[in-house]
Write a protein that binds this DNA or RNA. Sequence first.
DNA 1: CGGCTCATTGACCAACGTCAATGCCGGTGG
DNA 2: CCACCGGCATTGACGTTGGTCAATGAGCCG
Lengths: 241, 241
Amino acid sequence: MKIAPLIQKLEQFQALSDEDKQTLEAAGGNVVSLAPKQDMISQGDRPEHVHLLLEGWACRYKIMRNGDRQIMAYLIPGDLCDVHVTLLDRMDHSIGSLSACKILTFPRQRLADVMEKNKKLLRALWWSTLVDEAILREWLVNVAGRPSEKRLGHLICEMIHRARAVGLTEDDSFDMPVTQEELADSMGMTPVHMNRCFQTLRGEGLISAEGKRVVIDNLPRLMEFSEFDPLYLHQVTKALV
Amino acid sequence: MKIAPLIQKLEQFQALSDEDKQTLEAAGGNVVSLAPKQDMISQGDRPEHVHLLLEGWACRYKIMRNGDRQIMAYLIPGDLCDVHVTLLDRMDHSIGSLSACKILTFPRQRLADVMEKNKKLLRALWWSTLVDEAILREWLVNVAGRPSEKRLGHLICEMIHRARAVGLTEDDSFDMPVTQEELADSMGMTPVHMNRCFQTLRGEGLISAEGKRVVIDNLPRLMEFSEFDPLYLHQVTKALV
DNA sequence: CGGCTCATTGACCAACGTCAATGCCGGTGG
DNA sequence: CCACCGGCATTGACGTTGGTCAATGAGCCG
């Protein structure tokens, strides 16, 4: 099933019947490929489709006055990028691919119809936007309140938990197709300093990133170091440890 | 009508019939008073009620490991504090009063029943959580990407727009019952530095805060200075200027 | 091999944090 | 009515985290 990772995510909230799954899958339209660093939707758009990420990583971002980019969320397979557009008039931010992506597009109205008729799915999708909001709150805490090394550590902890929930990890490692510059843009720091943070975490024996592969050498210790508490992810599989 | 400010807010999204309004009002329970600096809900709770703020200001916050508090949202009259709890299992943060508050409590199940039966209200309430999320994204941009004086300026612009939407402004001034320390906790800075930011904005002739009353001397210029674009608030009344 | 993007390094700098003192104001008890 | 107290705003001197600038490497691809 194309939408398997989404199903996997939604079932953390509520079990879905085969019929529910089929209904959702049937609402899907085309699968589209997107090259790295391309916009999927831009700020100001009134998109006609909702996008489900099937492969690759993407991000929400805004471009600021001085040209800086602020990344506000990372999107991984199973993430619906923009359920908003079924309710909000216009995109207040852009969504762009980080790596090469495969995307399933849902015609907006067809998804709205599904939610109109199937309350279980509606609740599940609403739930997923609430989890996105919870993640955003934790990002704010992270950026506003923690020193830079812990920020990076916390982000890595979050991403391995989310990646694991959709089956994208191996032991304590996963692919993170994101440059240090992009990481810096998401955590409110400079690329130079992001690099220094990586050095620190490696020096402490907490992680050993090689290229785009992040290997966490000691997850419990990294979680402790980064003050990471997975409660905010509202995952059923609470404990990874 | 007790829930007038909420109605006023929801109707930015969609007009509601008298019947809709009555349905929503009827779901409400008791009106409760809360002294300043009291928790309304605490992290980890599974609350039985959804809270609608009728009077006063409150905030979402988390306490961090080192005892610092991070405020993640300000809540003003008309704001539903925790629609989440109809779907998320447990509170991942706390909500506390800043000033004395009056709160209308909705028994969780009764609100869920309303949404079950009335799709228009369900959509309106979902919409309001999506707007909350949009505000949160902008806070992240603000804290991660703007220098401290613009952060404060941006927050003030946001709050006067939100206050105006529920009729709580007079010309370009409004009551902000929040200490500089609380503001600092929301913008990721220290109270000392928050004070310096106030001095700058006053010195530039942008605002003139006297006690808890904020007077904006030149709103267009403050918006320009703070890089404030109200799009993210998704208000119908876009322009204040 | 040349040219690209990205990671890494070092020297220096500024925004913001820390610490500690002082002032202001409203509330309260004598 | 007035003195005292407690919370908050304000100020100044100084310290530190993280930003800036600019150069060097390392890996990849045509």
